[in-house]
């Protein structure tokens, strides 16, 4: 299954390849994608899927546009 993946800012170092095309071995949720990419959950603040804020259990579909954003804001 193929998705279009953007890893914002410091998450870029977890990119599986040079481009935004990302091949997944099976259908998965946003939470499973984060684990699949080897990103510590504590480093991802939110995901946007097809332009909408997603949940960890949002199921990804073929050609989904996925953007993961890191924690970096303050409080």
């Amino acid at each position: 299954m193929r998705i279009n993946l953007t890893l914002e800012a410091i998450l870029g170092k977890f990119a599986p390849g040079p481009g935004q095309d990302c091949e997944l071995p099976r259908p998965m949720t946003v939470g499973q994608l984060i684990g699949h990419l080897g990103i510590p959950e504590s480093q991802v603040m939110f995901a946007i899927v097809d332009g909408q804020m997603a949940n960890l259990d949002t199921m990804l579909h073929e050609n989904a546009s996925v953007s993961l954003c890191p924690y970096i804001c303050g409080g």
């Binding site: 960890l56 924690y71 970096i72």
Partner: peptide, 20 residues
Amino acid sequence: EHMPNVGMRKFGTVQHMMAQ
């Protein structure tokens, strides 16, 4: 279920340390 809130509940603001 909202991801930033789920993260805030799990990690609080502690996660900002490694983010910075």
